[in-house]
Amino acid sequence: MSGGWLEGNATLITGGGSGIGRAVAERFLAEGASVTILGRDKDRLEEVVRSVADPSRVHTVTADVRDGAALAAAVAETVERFGKLDTLVANAGVWDYQRQLTRLSPEEVDTAFDEIFSVNVKGYLLAAQAAWRELVKTRGSIVMTLSNASFYVNGGGPLYTASKHACLGLMRELAYELAPKVRVNGVACGGMNTDLRGPESLALAGRSISASFAKKGPDTPPPPIPLHDSSTEPRDFTGPYVLLASRAQSGPITGHAISVDGGIGVRGFARAAGGDDL
């Protein structure tokens, strides 16, 4: 496709081998961008390359977002391959599967906090640190994958919710610090059918949200969100990323989070209190 909203854009996406990261990569390619996808699983990254119409516009980097030197190298490789960097999509993350504080031992709190915050928050900060100089050159933008848990409770347990609240604050702080040269925004996604994994420290690295969706049958009650009959496939969440990455479409927008959560913000509380059974 030519003439898309991101024609000529060069993008780096962390966590681009699966889930919303892969969906964003595929959508950006369809909109005319060239994309570097970074992830820990080389096979998954190569699968993305094989699946796209024009592999010459995709570059892969096998790395961990907790490695600042690797992120700096990914930025350098993107510039070498595509000549510049216009957009950073900070996306790699883990979920705590709503593991409540009362179900965590002190040791689990200690280790899981370090892992979740290192991936979800430090990973975003390191990516921004690696990319900001190149983004200043292009007057580019950063788009962060946030969550309904960046605003509301019970989208995860205390560790995930705290990490996503931190990402919201990080997005807003960087929007101020990098203005007027670089725009920084976020997309606050709701639940979707994605291969989001849990932390290794809680023995949840092998668990995928997709497995929960696969178990649902015709008699399964809908999720308690207003748009409960809307699609939950990652590709249906990609439009706001395109909008925020496009300078022509969102040039005056920075420090803003677009909620794509099925209307959770207007639902109200499903339960009066979360600890009635304690």
Rank of each mutant, 00 (worst) to 15 (best):
W132I: 09
G262E: 00
E107D: 13
E31C: 11
G251E: 12
I225T: 13
A166T: 05
E31N: 05
R197F: 05
D114F: 03
G274A: 13
S118H: 10
R50M: 07
A128C: 14
C189D: 08
T220I: 07
L146A: 15
K164V: 05
S250M: 04
L204P: 01
S105G: 11
F28E: 02
A63S: 05
G3R: 11
G251N: 13
L101S: 11
T87M: 10
E7F: 10
L170N: 00
D236M: 09
K164M: 11
T220F: 09
K215I: 03
R139Y: 07
S18Q: 14
L126N: 03
R57H: 13
H228D: 14
R99T: 15
K215T: 13
P223H: 09
I264R: 15
S231F: 09
R247M: 10
P234Y: 04
F113R: 03
A10Q: 11
A131E: 00
T220P: 05
G156K: 04
E200T: 14
I258D: 03
G155V: 04
E177C: 05
E173L: 10
Y97C: 00
L88S: 00
A149N: 03
P55G: 08
Y152P: 02
L170R: 02
A63W: 02
S231V: 09
P180D: 07
D195N: 15
R27D: 03
V182F: 06
G239C: 05
A23C: 10
E80C: 08
T194W: 03
F82L: 06
N120Q: 08
V35H: 02
L170D: 02
Y176W: 09
G93P: 04
L196A: 09
G206N: 13
R81E: 12
V182A: 02
G191K: 07
A72Y: 02
S250I: 07
G251P: 12
N193R: 15
A270R: 11
Y97K: 09
A272T: 13
V136S: 05
V94P: 04
F28D: 00
A112K: 01
D96I: 05
R197Q: 15
Y160G: 00
E26A: 13
A188T: 01
D86H: 15
S56T: 13
T14D: 04
C167K: 02
I264E: 08
H165W: 15
N9D: 12
R44P: 06
H59Q: 14
G3S: 12
G32E: 01
S147A: 10
